[in-house]
């Protein structure tokens, strides 16, 4: 068989607490990112993503401690993003136990940051995170949580980050994020078909069919979702079964491929 399509739950973390949280009954503290990470590890999520949406720099060290605690108890790959502005920020996250570090806004204003990180730590740990919206002429890069237009073409930016050494791209449609209407499949596919590195589809998942479409129609290598997992709408196992049912290779299922 071939490399499996990855299912990646994403936890938004602010000031050390999970912003959108599950209400798993077995959790003593559902707002603790580490507790949630353990649940996803036990459920055999293929990877985990922490996105730090903390506003202030002062609270950033909180995230390092969370990454350390998570890496001590979870033996799956961990991607951490949010607030990475320099190679030193990435280094601290990697030393704390992150396997990959996502860069977003800083790579819009200074794409060479991606090359610096790839040079120092290797492409395999550099994730180029792209927030895009559909505008008149195509998809445009937006920063600041989708509020600030940049005039930069998303496809060109994606190709540039890959050529600078990003080992993977996390592509989020800001039009779809939070809508539960499904991924922007045209955006995901346009980027996935034009870069040599893996692409993670993000933004808008509300159903299991959306995950399947992200791979089958969006050509994504991995599917990221937040609320359908956090609120217990669907389990990792259900997501895996849905992908397998569509003939997409996933872990633990031998009769597809």
């Amino acid at each position: 068989m071939t490399v499996r399509t990855r299912i990646i739950p994403c936890l938004d973390v602010a000031n050390g607490r999970v912003v959108k949280g599950v209400n798993f009954v077995e959790l003593q503290d559902a707002g603790d990112p580490v507790e949630q990470a353990r649940v996803y590890d036990a459920a055999e999520a293929d990877e985990l993503c922490f996105l730090d949406i903390t506003a202030s720099h002062e609270e950033r060290d909180t995230l390092l401690h969370i990454v350390e605690r998570t890496a001590a108890v979870c033996f799956m790959p961990l991607t951490v993003g949010g607030g990475v502005r320099a190679p030193e920020d990435a280094r601290r996250l990697l030393l704390a136990g992150a396997d990959k570090v996502a860069v977003n806004s800083a790579a819009v204003s200074r794409p060479e940051l991606v090359a610096d990180m790839a040079e120092r730590f290797g492409s395999q740990c550099v994730v180029g995170s792209i927030d895009a919206r559909l505008t008149g002429s195509g998809w445009e890069i937006f920063t600041h949580g989708g509020r600030r237009a940049t005039g930069i073409d998303a496809l060109a930016h994606a190709q540039r980050l890959a050529s600078l050494g990003a080992g993977e791209l996390l592509v989020t449609s800001m039009d779809r994020d939070g809508t539960k209407d499904g991924y922007d499949l045209q955006l995901i596919r346009a980027i996935a078909d034009s870069v040599p590195v893996p692409v993670i589809a993000s933004g808008g998942v509300g159903t299991l069919d959306h995950l399947v479409a992200g791979v089958a129609e969006g050509h994504a290598d991995a599917v990221l979702a937040a609320s359908i997992f956090h609120y217990g709408t669907h389990s990792i196992a259900e997501a895996r079964a849905a992908l397998a049912g569509a003939g997409i290779p996933v872990r633990g299922v031998k009769n597809v491929g």
Binding site: M1, S123, E168, P196, R251
Partner: peptide, 28 residues
């Protein structure tokens, strides 16, 4: 896609020590 990133098979050749066939995480 390169890097080869994600879970994939470990298919044994012969009877090597320590290894069992299964799925493991690759990133290279």
């Amino acid at each position: 896609k390169i890097p080869h990133m994600g879970w994939n098979d470990v298919d044994l050749a012969g009877s090597p020590p320590l290894l069992e066939s299964g799925e493991a995480y690759f990133l290279h």
